[in-house]
Write a protein that binds this DNA or RNA. Sequence first.
DNA 1: CTAAAAACGCAAATGATTTGCATTTAGTTA
DNA 2: TAACTAAATGCAAATCATTTGCGTTTTTAG
Lengths: 126, 126
Amino acid sequence: MKKDYIFNIIKSSKEPLTADDIYTLVLKDININLSTVYRSLNSLVKQGTIQKVIHQDKIAYYELTNTNSHKHTLICDVCKATYSTSICDIESISKKIKKETGFDVTSHMIEFHGVCPKCKKELSNK
Amino acid sequence: MKKDYIFNIIKSSKEPLTADDIYTLVLKDININLSTVYRSLNSLVKQGTIQKVIHQDKIAYYELTNTNSHKHTLICDVCKATYSTSICDIESISKKIKKETGFDVTSHMIEFHGVCPKCKKELSNK
DNA sequence: CTAAAAACGCAAATGATTTGCATTTAGTTA
DNA sequence: TAACTAAATGCAAATCATTTGCGTTTTTAG
């Protein structure tokens, strides 16, 4: 099943991948159709194995469901690279929200935009 | 100029609106085309007057650029209603990220998912 | 081995958003 | 006020990531 293949790719990636990233990666080894990629991805999401996050570029990124520590994305607005961080103190924010608004927060996603160290260095050289 | 009209609608709305929300609202008073809505919206975003945020439903929501306190969205996964909150302690998180990864965070967006008080009440009545 | 289910591929459909182009409106100058 | 140019608008077609219908192939259970 190509789903397993896709799962392994996501598993071994340090960063969240788009459907197209995955499609390209799989194609290097075996033949596959984009619909199959999407169907597998949706299936993995449904079974809770992976997580789908829509970024501000409107594209879905897939990554392993973080069992213990969850992750958030750092997006460099210069080179567009994405990084992950587990830094997050939402727990306390969620509590505060619940207390002040009565809204029960069950999950959240954060996207940080900025400039990565590499681009910062390059920019300072100009 | 219909852009001003659209701006006022966004200004007087308590919650972020989609292009379609705005289109429908404007249509109640004057005639307008969806492309005009999108063009006006893009123009307002470019001039920094309003802010565009892509939610996990992959749809763009528009709201006033928060000059002083910025806002984040609470999305009820039951009734799909969206609320805003200004509760956010990202400042300290951003600092931590910069210190630990060197990534310069310039902006961020958070989407909280959960159950709103109204739905919670209805659910508990079943 | 055989029938039903699951996985696949391919092409067409979707839906929000964008864009090209022709037309109307607004603004400016002579 | 007339004449001209730029900006705003409408309409239809184009985009692009993602989904879906349908026919075919592969896998699985009995």
